[in-house]
């Protein structure tokens, strides 16, 4: 699931545009505001379910239909798959992720996208995520 090492300008532009749609959606749905996410986690507002539901339905349609309609992606070599597996790392990682998410209301997408809304407070969370990812990789790389 690595993808192109060298990107053509057209590919780079499409990747940028895809990210931009994603970031626009995160902002429009107010998921870039930790207070809204924490409000969901405290059962005050069910909006996050609609965000997640809307995104999953569109993604599901794309992932199921496009590989049947096209032999390969328009600019790529093959349709990839999300390599998810259930093991102790996934369980522990997901549990830790949830504790952190419940503490700060920020997950990776909004930590990055939030910078586009002038929310510099989120740099604290982004810094934490960057260091957490470093610590995880260093620990995994030891053994």
């Amino acid at each position: 699931m690595s993808g192109p090492t060298k990107m053509s300008p057209a590919t780079a532009l499409v990747v940028l545009a895809s990210g931009a749609l994603f970031g626009f959606g995160l902002s429009l749905s107010t998921m870039v505001q930790p207070e809204v996410v924490l409000g969901f986690l405290r059962f005050q507002d069910w909006g996050l379910m609609l965000v997640m539901g809307g995104a999953v339905v569109v993604t599901l349609l794309a992932y199921k239909l496009l590989p049947r309609l096209l032999r390969r992606p328009l600019l790529g070599d093959a349709f990839h798959q999300h390599p998810s597996q259930w093991n102790r790392d996934t369980l522990q990682g997901a549990a830790l992720f949830g504790i952190g998410w419940g503490l700060c209301g920020v997950c990776p997408g909004p930590a990055i996208a939030g910078l586009g809304t002038g929310n510099w407070d989120l740099l604290w969370a982004l810094g934490g995520i960057v260091l957490g990812a470093l610590a995880q990789g260093l620990r995994a790389g030891r053994g």
Partner: peptide, 12 residues
């Protein structure tokens, strides 16, 4: 919270 989000999402 950010640290746990980074560590946990990468581990999981």
């Amino acid at each position: 919270g950010g640290f746990l989000v980074g560590y946990g999402s990468r581990l999981g």
